[in-house]
Design a protein around this nucleic acid. Structure first.
Lengths: 337, 337
DNA sequence: ACGGTTTACTCAAACGTTTGCATAGCCTGA
DNA sequence: TCAGGCTATGCAAACGTTTGAGTAAACCGT
């Protein structure tokens, strides 16, 4: 017999029924000690291992979590994934991965595949270009819970984990104000990104309280390309009111902005203070890092999202109708490189 | 009926047998056109979807690849993973992920989990601390092919994809020699790493041809921590023979080395030229990037590894005993940031 | 009209495990 | 002694799909 040993096999050899073997292996109380021992003994001898696919099939549960991210190689997401994997692994779950490349079709296809694989739950950071959420709504019918991560769709009754970038931005801007900055510019990301909105809202709220109201000409947007970043920087630096600080959308944008500013002979963090978001490892290697960066703790967020998903899975079995939705906000923190 | 529709369900409603339905759905030639239509029709109406777990179970195939990396968040690996996922996705395979954190036990456990999940094949970059390869050998019994990636164990008869860092190093050193450098130091990684050996071998071979033979005092090793990097740099800079170029183990090491050198008022890439490996995105943001960096194309390597694994899977079904082993070497390339 | 092929379908087993229910044997207490 | 209650086990169905083997009916040419 070259095939791996099965419960049936063990049963036959011991002249008992498969059900007894199954129960013996699970230490079921109604199985005699003697039989239990014999079963365990033989199982070890044959180095029996349960066929998980059979169990998945039978139990309608795969102990697998689906994770869908726009990109697997981007630092923020890969940190998150690392946190997810660690948390999942600790709870004996496996992780099935997919990357959407910010393509709605691909995202749909991945969701489909994961549904077919019967993952128990899904963590997803939606694609920038996804405008239709049917593929996520559909999962409800299949009883597959979703935890949205970082990029959150505008849907009612969803679970999510994200960083409150509005609050983070308020903190950040307040810090700048306290340091005496009066004219603070912002290089924001594409308007339709939720992340951009949050930053903008925080920026406005923080400034709104102060006499020097919000000035739209101090907001530039970038498409996140290098050229876009330069252009936005140029726009801010040539504004009528001289900015003394610039809030950049993230560290990459900040570094480009700094690069541009240096070419214009501006003294970084003296003439103009640059602050941003992310806390990439880069910062410690560059000579002119942003003065402050808002860390979003992607690893922690990933962990948190996983824990929530696992909780949902546990609950799902017991109380079918659970109407409280997790809306977890991880606090960001100002880092001074 | 709240449960998802099954083949049986369709069969019952149409008063035909499940086998007919199954074959109809697969466009089996022996099913009448009329019946086929009726089946497809009803399947669509009920929005039938095959239960993959049942199929996995029945076919002993999961269309899933296992990927084990030391870390999911490190740039090199996450790029590789991105390549793997893209290649797998294109071939309708899913990817199950695990990170070993360079821990042998965890690696073993992940292999175990993946075997239980009945992944069809595995791509693995082994942990630094793995000294025993039984868990990989064991997979042969289960007919699960492995493709080793980048970090390759010393085992006979294995498939692997890696970058020939020896050749890359030879190229790199030759380039330095051509530029007139006479005394070239090296900051190498931990000796037991294969990656370190390759770099060393390349270094020696490149220098061996020249009159200025290989000088052991020009080799420092680092444990890859920041302090280790500084220390190694110090060692090289204070060597009796004044080095005019330093080959660093990777970009991170190089950046630390450069940082240290700058503190010692050394003019980067003038007094001493720094070169390294990786081509991290960092390089373009830092003021003093390594003058040359050897790109290993992790994304491409990941793709390649996946393609090989898929080929193995196809072959495995037909010719059980295939004795040719893939040893794919991806060529590295010198990049001048 | 009859042997033989083709067409279109059914049957039943198989994949490996779990689990509700049945039951045989034994013990216990009144 | 017997009802009742354990203890240890077996039976069989179920999960959903695929597939080899079998077969009834229709069709063919002669």
């Amino acid at each position: 017999m070259s095939n791996p040993p099965t419960i049936k096999e063990i049963a036959k050899r011991l002249n008992i029924s498969p059900s007894t073997v199954s129960r013996a292996l699970h230490d079921h109380p109604s199985i005699g000690l003697r039989t239990k021992m014999r079963v365990h003994q033989l199982a070890k001898e044959l180095s029996y291992e349960p066929n998980q696919t059979a169990i998945f099939f039978q139990q309608r549960k795969t102990y697998t979590l689906g994770v869908i991210m726009p990109s697997l190689s981007e630092a923020f997401f890969s940190s998150a994934i690392s946190g997810i994997e660690d948390a999942a692994n600790k709870n004996r779950y496996s992780v099935l991965m997919g990357q959407s490349h910010d393509d709605e079709q691909r995202e749909k296809q991945i969701v489909e595949t994961m549904k077919n694989h019967r993952v128990d739950g899904i963590i997803v950071s939606i694609s920038k270009n996804t405008v239709n959420y049917d593929h996520f709504e559909m999962l409800k019918k299949y009883n597959i819970p979703i935890v949205f991560f970082d990029r959150i769709p505008k849907l009612p009754n969803i679970h999510y984990v994200a960083c409150d970038m509005e609050a983070g931005t308020i903190q950040l801007v307040n810090h700048l104000l306290k340091d005496g900055h009066k004219v603070i510019g912002m290089i924001n990301g594409p308007e339709k990104l939720y992340a951009s909105q949050q930053r903008l809202d925080g920026y406005i709220k923080a400034l709104g309280k102060k006499p020097l109201k919000f000035d739209p000409s101090l907001i530039a947007t970038t498409d996140l390309t290098c050229e876009g970043n330069f252009q936005a920087t140029q726009q801010l630096l040539s504004a009528k009111r001289k900015v003394t600080a610039i809030v950049a959308f993230n560290d990459y944008v900040a570094l480009d902005a700094i690069k541009y500013a240096r070419e214009k002979k501006i003294k970084i963090n003296q003439d103009v203070t640059f602050v941003s978001y992310a806390n990439l490892p880069i910062s410690s290697y560059t000579d002119f890092p942003p003065a402050i960066t808002v860390d979003q703790f992607p690893y922690l967020q990933g962990q948190k999202a996983t824990e929530i998903l696992l909780e949902l899975l546990e609950k799902g079995d017991k109380e079918q109708e659970e109407t409280t939705y997790y809306k977890i906000i991880v606090e960001s923190k100002l880092i001074f490189p």
